[in-house]
Nucleic acid binder design. Structure first.
Lengths: 205, 205
DNA sequence: TGAATTATTGACCAAACGGTCAGGATCAAG
DNA sequence: CTTGATCCTGACCGTTTGGTCAATAATTCA
């Protein structure tokens, strides 16, 4: 149960697939799908192009595998909202967790940003399926809190959009943020402080 | 003073350059720079590929011209904030204007989103120059209002980031928004309502 | 009208790219 | 050590793409 993924996977397969996934994350997140080349991925992974294609059937295959492998990790923070916890603490915790993701995993953020911008050709099923279910479950929790008067009333779904957009903004548009703020500042720390203050005020009943 | 752009421009030049700009906006905003081909742009404009390259030196030239031509229009709403107006009305007006931009000009929003995601290879000067100045001027106005106690105190720059990210989210990630909301709803109207309520609460001193 | 300028295009080119393949290197197991 | 499976690569292929160019068509203006 520790590693029940592929039936059999040699150490070399394990290592090289990981290298390719990391290289692909570098290249796709920097250039988008169309802007990325298998050669770049191979170079970033330290492998030859044919060797990359020995492990993955096609560029499309690499991209799709990468997205699906990262999706769970990307959506994890939302699923960790505890319906039994303190509403304000849970929401501020979620915001902080998303902000940490933007700071520590900007490549993942940009990867998904490109995919959604593109029209989500590889995620359409997930968008209308799994993602929507996860959001719906969270919406139920939020609405419960609002009905109980422990959280200010707002549209829960648009509240979630606001958290997504603002936190991911610091990763996806980091260049713009840094250009506007100027050097010698910490966009993520400042952003975290701003968001905490903002949502505390917004969500206080 | 009505049209002091190019020294001389025939009607054909005027028309075809406009066609190309529109086609380029279609293609670049849907696929990003690397994902766009001159052939697609030509087809979208109703011209042949060599004819497109008769008016523009290269794909890069098309892209750069398009960005610079649209930049002013894109930044206009922020410059229309009136320092002499009512603070709350001015801010809510700015949010509403940005929201209208997302609804009516999603192609422009996505075009800039791609460019910033990419690392803004064509906008670096503008980001650190003109954009920063515009933001700085607005920041001065906001700080004035906050000092006067007519607007709640917050970091003005991060406040601006929040408006940018949330309003543009409805254009750039429209597919995701629609997938989560489900059909039969108006994301932009709902978003506008949410944002107005949110910023009214946030900015009330 | 006719010459000069502007506009348009089919054919073409070199580079980049996704992907293939035969054959050789490496490794694990008996 | 041997053998079979796994791993790796140089060379190659067809297609796509950005861009060129010579030749032709359309337009402008004296």
């Amino acid at each position: 149960m520790t590693d029940a993924k592929m039936p059999r996977m040699t150490r070399i397969q394990q290592k090289n697939r990981d290298l390719i996934m990391d290289g692909a994350l570098n290249v796709f997140s920097a250039n988008g799908f169309r802007g990325a080349t298998i050669d770049q991925i191979a170079r970033s992974a330290g492998l030859s192009k044919p060797n990359v294609l020995y492990y993955f059937a096609s560029k499309d295959d690499i991209h799709k595998t990468l997205l699906t492998e990262l999706l769970d990790m990307w959506l994890a923070p939302m699923q960790q909202i505890d319906p039994a916890g303190d509403p304000m603490a849970e929401m501020l915790g979620y915001v902080a967790a998303k902000m940490r993701m933007s700071r520590d995993y900007p490549r993942e953020s940009r990867l998904f940003a490109y995919e959604i911008l593109q029209g989500a050709p590889h995620l359409t099923q997930i968008l209308g399926g799994g993602l929507r279910d996860i959001v719906d479950r969270t919406v139920v929790v939020l609405q419960g809190w609002m009905v109980e008067g422990r959280l200010a009333r707002t549209d829960p779904r648009h509240l979630i959009f606001s958290i997504w957009s603002m936190t991911q903004h610091y990763a996806d548009f980091e260049i713009q943020v840094r250009a506007v703020l100027g050097s010698g500042r910490d966009p993520f720390a400042e952003g975290q402080e701003f968001l905490e203050q903002m949502y505390r005020k917004l969500l206080t009943p």
